[in-house]
């Protein structure tokens, strides 16, 4: 229940790419008990460090989950008071159509396509947000060009261990990193562990790049959601809900370090943690930017299997989430 509550609290705090102040404040309070120092860099990444013994073999290990989410930017206010918007990150327009949205200032509304536009012809220019304003003048009392909106956050429990809502991408990853930090809180390690909550992943993995440059990790692990092959009509993919932590082999931005993936598999087997391998043929994650920042790092990823990513009904299995936490913690202890 505690895990679910953490995920829910994180999900209910809207923070679109580039405007992560609120979620950062929340995460700072949550991670503080488990780290020695905590800093925010120029782009807004939250970087917390738990210091190791500082021996000769001490490594720098970076664990990263992104705290931003996809959303919309207000571009223009029509005389009618309707808001023209541009997508921030990889918005799926069919998934966004006819849903509730909320602005960074708390203004509520609905996002809809123009009348008579067929789903097959959806493009962002044909979408607008209706906040119920009677005209432009009234709208401008609550909203200005340059304001951001996100799809309304929500989270519910379904049958068994399944949870459904948004934005599980990637608040569930943040919860995993928090869980690992808690599990390692009282463990004295040789290595310095950097818990990083990155900004602007959804617009091109920008935050992790500068954070990794600052941390200069030897080993970098990314915690993000991955697609699954267990939905109706899905492309074949040997990864599904309830299958445990997904150890990333590749996605379209990175091929993970083989030694890291092997060590993750070993840690999972030895500790009897349910796991599966992930070969994702599309999509990118912070893994790649961490791998190539500065002089480079050995990079891998533990992914949380998630259905319907970038929709309002993203779905995870809490059992998988727990497996990701256990695997992350055991892997670090094994280094």
């Amino acid at each position: 229940m505690k895990l679910y509550n953490t995920i829910k609290d994180l999900c209910l705090c809207p923070s679109v790419s580039g405007r992560e102040e609120k979620i950062r404040d929340m995460l700072r309070e949550l991670i503080k008990p488990f780290c020695d120092e905590c800093a925010t860099d120029n782009l807004g990444n939250l970087i917390a460090v738990k210091k190791g013994r500082g021996t000769e073999n001490s490594k720098r290990i970076m664990l990263c989950a992104h705290m931003d989410e996809i959303g919309f930017l207000v571009n223009f206010i029509e005389d009618s008071g309707m808001l023209r918007v541009a997508p921030v990150g990889g918005i799926s327009l069919p998934a966004a159509a006819f849903t509730r949205v909320v602005s960074e200032k708390g203004v509520k509304g609905a996002i809809v396509p123009e009348d008579k536009v067929k789903a097959a012809d959806y493009k962002a220019q044909a979408f607008y947000i209706d906040i119920g304003a009677k005209d432009k003048k009234q709208a401008e009392t609550k909203v200005a060009i340059g304001d951001f909106f996100v799809a309304a956050p929500s989270l519910e429990k379904l049958m068994g261990n399944r949870i459904c809502g948004r934005p599980l991408d990637d608040r569930v990853g943040c919860a995993v990193v928090l869980g690992i930090a808690e599990a390692l809180a009282d463990v004295q390690l040789d290595h310095d562990i950097y818990y990083v909550f990155s900004v602007q992943e959804e617009v091109g993995c920008r935050g992790s790049q500068t954070a990794a440059f600052r941390v200069q990790p030897d080993i970098a692990l990314c915690f993000d959601v991955t697609a699954t092959g267990d939905t109706l009509g899905a492309s074949p993919m040997a990864c599904g809900l309830g299958g445990g932590a997904a150890i990333k082999i590749k996605d379209s931005s990175v091929i993970c370090d083989e030694e890291i993936t092997k060590a993750l598999c070993r840690a999972a087997k030895e500790n009897k943690i349910k796991h599966q391998k992930e070969v994702l043929l599309f999509g990118g994650t912070d893994t790649s930017s961490m791998q190539l920042a500065g002089a480079g790092a050995a990079a891998g990823a533990i992914s949380i299997p998630t259905r319907y990513i970038h929709s309002g009904v993203e779905m995870c299995d809490l059992g998988d989430v727990q497996c990701c936490i256990d695997l992350g913690a055991e892997f670090i202890k094994s280094i």
Partner: peptide
Amino acid sequence: QVKRYVSGGNDAGTIHKTGEGVK
């Protein structure tokens, strides 16, 4: 005036991501 469209890009794109990041 505030830019009313998301389009184009410029040197800010690389500058803000350089090193440890730039406001």
